[in-house]
Design a protein around this nucleic acid. Structure first.
Length: 203
DNA sequence: AGTGCGATTGACT
DNA sequence: GTCAATCGCACTA
């Protein structure tokens, strides 16, 4: 099996915007591709959140630690951490090496490997398979073992181009934060049933 | 060694 | 709408 189908070219690092907010918007409509021993799981990104330089809610704000060190890679590397002891959250590092910023991937529209995702999630509703940051990592079998990997190379987890155009991208405040709650740093596909969050934020 | 706390989810009223 | 589960990590001493 080909690791990177011709219709889904791997995104080159040089193609990724250097700015965190621009990257968060750029990633809408792009693909997350997960290769496991049993097959290929993939989905189209329909929701992201930016955690730019100096963001009080960003994990990099207090400095580099053993948990968040992947955020300090240059753009295009995975930062995966465990939230609430229950859910892994998947981020794409942004900016240049040493800076510390990233983009949280919050929801996917499932594309391939849906039967595996259903098994991983224990449910049969396609809409709910990857609607939420902890749900999409469960569906795609993403955990801390993938922390720090290069997302610009086809391997176990990488980013790809889609040939399907995104109609409209909306912006809103982020979800579940106490700090920086007035900042418009969340991006989503308008009208997509695969986006998480309250309806109010998805207009 | 002990403490407090989340970039969430699923179950429940 | 509310609320508990659950645990790695950062921080204090």
């Amino acid at each position: 099996m080909r690791k990177s189908p011709a219709r889904w070219p791997t995104i080159k690092r040089s193609e990724l915007p250097l700015d965190t907010l621009l990257l968060a918007r750029y990633l809408i409509g792009k693909l997350v591709i997960r290769q496991t021993s049993r097959g290929t799981l993939s989905g189209r990104i329909v929701e992201t959140e930016a955690y730019p330089i100096g963001d009080l809610a960003g994990h990099a704000y207090a400095g580099k630690t053993t948990r968040n060190r992947s955020l300090f890679n240059c753009r295009g590397y995975a930062y995966v951490y465990l939230a609430y002891g229950t859910s892994y959250l998947f981020n794409v590092s942004s900016e240049t090496a040493g800076v510390g910023a990233g983009v949280l991937i919050r929801a996917l529209e499932p594309l391939t490997g849906m039967s595996s995702m259903e098994r991983n999630r224990g449910l049969h509703s396609v809409r709910d398979l990857a609607r939420g940051p902890g749900r999409l990592t469960a569906a795609l079998e993403i955990d801390r073992r993938l922390d720090g990997i290069d997302l610009c190379r086809a391997g176990s987890l990488w980013l790809g181009h889609d040939n399907h155009p995104v109609l409209e991208i909306g912006a809103s405040t982020r979800i579940g934060l106490s700090r920086e709650r007035n900042q418009l740093r969340r991006f989503y596909v308008r009208g997509s049933p695969f986006v998480s969050g309250p309806k109010k934020l998805n207009r």
